[in-house]
């Protein structure tokens, strides 16, 4: 059965941090089109603080996700602090006590994260938010679970990318960009984009490990 050890999972978070750092300016630029241009900066700041906290420490995936979540929720704020903080705290909760992360554990991690994000953000598919990335990603993952963990992860990643791209043609219904109405059409949503980058990074790391 395809799985990886929770104990080996810290590198998934290390890779996530790297991806956010590399895309700092890209995310800020996208955000600047219809937001205030600080998305990449705040994400980079939070993820870099997390990097310092986990560096050189022996911790598993659950602990690494929890560290990331706590930094985002208690030190970063904005909209992304509570949203991504919620996402990673759920991933930590659902993986807690699981020695092996298999396709069912990861399904629970993703599904629970999305449920709680929806609870706090009140967004749905089509609102031009990270939900446009998350919901299709989960659907694709669940639909492909019979084909194996790695395949399901790859399909999740591809669906997340399509979901992210779908935000270009959407008019924002929620958050700061929603005040722009039609003027928000034609550009990517920054949250949907950072969310895709993270799901893709997680999938890539996990595929290598299973």
């Amino acid at each position: 059965m395809e799985s990886f050890k929770n104990q080996d999972g810290k590198r998934i978070v290390e890779n996530l941090i790297k991806v956010i750092q590399e895309n700092r300016d890209y995310l800020s630029k996208i955000d600047g089109e219809i937001g205030d241009g600080d998305h990449g900066i705040n994400m980079n700041k939070g993820f870099s603080i997390c990097q310092e906290r986990i560096e050189g420490k022996d911790m598993n995936l659950t602990e690494a996700f929890k560290t990331l979540a706590m930094v985002l929720m208690t030190e970063i704020g904005g909209s992304m602090g509570p949203l991504y903080g919620t996402m990673f705290i759920e991933m930590a909760k659902q993986s807690k006590g699981k020695e092996e992360i298999d396709k069912e554990v990861f399904r629970q991690m993703l599904a629970s994260a999305i449920k709680e994000i929806q609870e706090i953000g009140n967004a749905k598919v089509g609102d031009k938010t990270l939900m446009d990335t998350l919901i299709p990603a989960l659907e694709a993952y669940e639909a492909a679970m019979d084909e194996g963990f790695a395949t399901a992860l790859e399909k999740m990643s591809a669906a997340a990318e399509r979901g992210k791209d779908s935000t270009i043609d959407l008019v924002a219904k929620i958050g700061r960009a929603s005040r722009l109405g039609e003027r928000s059409r034609g550009v990517l949503d920054a949250g949907a984009t950072s969310c895709w980058l993270m799901l893709k990074s997680m999938a890539d790391s996990m595929v290598q490990m299973v």
């Binding site: 600080d38 705040n42 700041k45 208690t74 970063i76 704020g77 904005g78 602090g81």
Partner: peptide, 11 residues
Amino acid sequence: GEIFSSPTAKA
């Protein structure tokens, strides 16, 4: 908060 960004829930 950060510049133009909400304070944290903790704050």
